[in-house]
Design a protein around this nucleic acid. Structure first.
Lengths: 115, 115
DNA sequence: GACACCTGCTAACTTTCCTTGGCATGTGCA
DNA sequence: TGCACATGCCAAGGAAAGTTAGCAGGTGTC
């Protein structure tokens, strides 16, 4: 979802939950400037690799960043992340539309479900 | 923040965290159609009043909805909620700008803080 | 008075998220 | 061989969020 495509309810919740975190916002901001590999980005942000990796995984799961494995000149495997050029506009109307496709947590999973 | 004013980092996190919840999205969607009072809205959404009240409070704290206490014809106190016409556009660039004003959780609170 | 409707609050439980530390893998270079 | 760099994973504790149940108050009507 890199454009202003109307998000489904579940996708919207996932993206919002992913973005609702200072560390992950910093990661997106850093990658918006230029792509980076895990260890370097961890140093740049001043957080541990393990922590960064968890956040990167969530961002990737939400489709906000993508990973690309490359080999550096000296033969080391570098996992470069870059941000996805998403555009998400949030208004009450957009939310009302997305809610139509919200999955009920427990019962079923039919896309056309509503009450 | 009812317009596309550049959000501060902390505000952005707060709004995103508030919106990242199915119940709260449903509340916003319902209030986008028409304003409602607590008990009626709870019935409409099929959730308990206590639960709805918690979510309404969070939405109000984030500035997404507002409350207005009124008296019905038969003299009962009704707390009507209505949605705030917010417009929030999310892109990597917007996030990068917001991150500049992110508060560090522990150390200080200076806006110009960096590492 | 009993009932139905409205409002709010708190305590307590459950679940999820965040974070750290350690361990394992691989590479190239002195 | 040992060090420095890269990658990943898993377990465990602490913190925060979500949810329920129960309590309190108010009004008007039968």
């Amino acid at each position: 979802m890199s454009a202003a495509s109307p998000p489904t309810g579940d996708d919207l919740v996932r993206v919002l939950a992913t973005l609702a975190n200072p560390h992950r916002l910093r990661v997106v901001a850093a990658l918006a400037r230029e792509r980076a590999y895990v260890s370097g980005l961890a140093r740049q942000l001043g957080i541990s690799r393990a922590l960064l990796q968890v956040h990167l995984r969530k961002l990737a799961a939400a489709g906000l960043v993508t990973a690309r494995l490359e080999l550096s000149e000296d033969g080391k495997a570098m996992n470069y992340y870059e941000v996805e050029p998403f555009v998400l506009t949030l208004t009450p109307a957009v939310i009302a539309a997305a809610v139509e496709t919200l999955t009920v947590p427990d019962s079923g999973e039919q896309p056309g479900a509503q009450e």
